[in-house]
Amino acid sequence: MKPQDIRTFFAALAADRPDPQTELDFVNDYTLLVAVVLSAQATDVGVNKATAKLFETVRDPAAMVALGEDGLRQHIRTIGLFNSKAKNVIALSEILLARHGGRVPRTRGELEALPGVGRKTANVVLNEAFGDPTLAVDTHVFRVSNRTGLATGKTVEAVEKKLMKVVPDDYMMGAHHWLILHGRHLCKARKPECFRCPVAELCAFNAKSTRR
């Protein structure tokens, strides 16, 4: 896409969703971090169901460590990979207490050093919790970026680097939210709903359909 088309692209997404928000439920920076770790290979809806009761009482690393791995498993057993995720959440909580005063660190290096935290999770936390202009590339963002021609690449990191170069500065903070929500609700993997897409005219996808 040309620079002006990219600006029009994000302006259309912004008009469609003026206040894009993560669909994960959380109450503070720590519960956001836990929710994003749990969301790997799981749906936000599934994670929210699992954490609804958990976050009523467990809202900081100390409470999580006190709950323990077995106790956490009971809350998240409906989520995929719950055994390894429970282990990671307890381990990262212990590290937060030992090295960071119980607080979520605000640098990428410190975040990615935590068990279960990769680049995508770090980007989400940096953007959502600390207001950094980062782009979290998940399966939805990867698909939308490649399908539309916004930022093509064979790897998640390649797409992220291109997005960081082409997304206008004034749309950067909400960019990954708009792309995630667009991919989740309209530009779906199997049946993209091009007939009601606000950016269909700018899209490079060659199988666009106007049929309902």
Rank of each mutant, 00 (worst) to 15 (best):
K2L: 12
P3W: 14
P3G: 09
Q4Y: 07
D5Y: 10
D5I: 11
R7F: 11
R7K: 12
F9L: 10
F10E: 03
A12H: 07
L13M: 10
D16K: 08
Q21P: 03
T22V: 12
E23H: 14
L24I: 12
F26G: 00
N28H: 13
Y30Q: 05
T31A: 05
L38Q: 05
L38M: 10
T43F: 08
V47K: 01
N48V: 13
K49P: 02
T51Y: 13
A52C: 12
K53Q: 15
K53G: 13
F55E: 01
E56I: 13
E56H: 05
T57E: 15
V58R: 04
R59Q: 13
P61Y: 15
G68C: 09
E69A: 02
R73W: 07
R77Y: 12
T78V: 09
I79D: 06
G80A: 07
L81C: 11
N83W: 01
S84F: 01
S84W: 00
K85D: 14
A86Y: 02
A86T: 07
A86D: 07
N88R: 02
V89A: 04
S93R: 09
H100K: 06
H100I: 03
H100S: 03
R103L: 09
V104I: 11
R106T: 00
G109A: 10
E110S: 11
E112V: 08
E112F: 05
P115F: 06
P115Q: 10
P115L: 03
G118S: 11
R119S: 02
T121P: 02
N123P: 11
V124T: 09
V124S: 03
N127H: 10
N127M: 11
E128K: 04
E128S: 06
A129G: 03
F130Q: 03
F130E: 03
F130M: 05
G131H: 12
T134A: 09
T134W: 01
L135F: 07
D138I: 09
H140K: 07
F142K: 08
R143M: 03
N146R: 14
N146T: 13
G149N: 12
L150S: 08
L150P: 06
L150W: 02
L150Q: 08
A151T: 02
T152K: 13
G153R: 10
K154P: 00
E157H: 12
K161A: 04
L163S: 01
M164H: 06
V166Y: 13
D169Y: 03
D170Q: 08
Y171Q: 04
A175R: 07
H177G: 04
H177M: 05
L179H: 08
I180L: 08
R184H: 11
H185K: 14
L186D: 04
C187V: 04
A189D: 07
A189Y: 15
F195V: 00
R196L: 13
P198T: 14
V199P: 15
L202C: 11
F205P: 04
F205H: 11
F205D: 01
S209H: 14
T210H: 13
T210E: 15
R212A: 07
R212Q: 10
